[in-house]
Design a protein around this nucleic acid. Structure first.
Lengths: 198, 198
DNA sequence: ACCTGAACACCGTTCAAGT
DNA sequence: ACCTGAACACCGTTCAAGT
């Protein structure tokens, strides 16, 4: 029992990320401090630097885990639904908005402007993965004749923008209550109109 | 000449906001420090607290100036264009995206989740002003028969979401280059389809 | 009214040193 | 490899005191 944990409880890197996400969710990004994380995990304040070269590196890693979880959520949601574009879009939209509201601060971090140059490559790849996911969805629907012709980009840009914009506005609590109530259903109907064949 | 400025150069509050926006733009939000602002303006580090009760209050005030400038920009853009919905939408979309790219960090701040409770009322009022602006635009277009019937909210939600989402994605550099090139034109066409009468 | 100066309790980061 | 302890140069905030 005493050889299992050498200095701390096993995997400091993972523990830091987990704890960081908790405080991010509970007390916001401004409250995130490396020293406090170290204190909470019973480790010296210099220990985190073994795993993250600086604070930004930890934030970048946190954002990356967010994208991975988002991709999983989306995939799971799309597997559990029907084949029609309307059903798949609705499922995807619900999953994205649910993730956004359940992880509002993390979503902010994921799409934050300031990322370290080293991490930004990995991060933008991750952010473009769900764009690709949506593009696949659109491509399939085009082949089924449920979405208008045109390049994936030209049809997709509206879908990404609508979904991301709505999720951001809802997560940030920037929509008046009248809009929020029926909002997602209205949005899906609007997206379907924007995608409908001519 | 020596009675004009007592301790500093006249209006510390305005000077703080101006300087803060400069460093926000040039070095990002993490680089914003009250002490450095005070140093730059040749004033003691405790002076800012006379005008902003804490750092968050300064950030909130900065976000508010952003909303005011955005509203001005939008109004100006809409005054210089034609009467058709297509023209007005295009003008508004261009203005919003231009503002977003020219003030990317500020936009992040404006829509940040974490605002002080006292300021959030004023801020959400400001954020809902441009939503109202868009709703007016939509209402006018409905009366002209250029936009489908339905409540302003149900038609508007798609327009806000699309515009805000696209602006955020572009400002944050989260769109692949292929998409960015023709993106705004594609987006406007998509929004028009989503709004078109049945 | 508006600002200063000192004080307090925090930060992030680095680096020799320990195991 | 992984972590500690001390050190350095910063922070935000508060508060008596000055003009």
């Amino acid at each position: 029992m005493h050889t299992r944990r050498r200095y701390h409880h096993g995997d400091l890197r993972a523990a830091l990320l987990t704890r960081a996400e908790e405080t991010l969710r509970e007390r916001g990004p401004a409250a995130l401090s490396l020293r406090e994380l170290a204190r909470d995990l019973g480790v010296s304040h210099a220990a985190p630097s073994r795993h993250f070269k600086d604070k930004q590196a930890l934030l970048d890693a946190l954002a990356l885990t967010g994208f991975h979880r988002l991709a999983q959520t989306m995939t799971a949601a799309l597997e559990e639904t029907g084949e029609s574009f309307a059903e798949r879009l609705r499922a995807g939209a619900h999953a994205y908005v649910e993730f956004a509201t359940a992880n509002a601060e993390l979503l902010d971090l994921m799409y934050a402007i300031k990322h370290a140059p080293e991490a930004s490559e990995e991060l933008s790849a991750a952010s473009q993965r769900w764009i690709a996911q949506m593009e696949n969805l659109i491509g399939d629907a085009q082949r089924r004749g449920e979405v208008r012709d045109g390049s994936l980009e030209s049809v997709g840009i509206g879908v990404f923008s609508s979904l991301h914009g709505y999720a951001s506005l809802v997560a940030g609590d920037h929509l008046p209550p009248e809009v929020r109530a029926q909002g997602l259903d209205d949005l899906v109907a609007y997206i379907l109109r924007g995608c409908a064949p001519e």
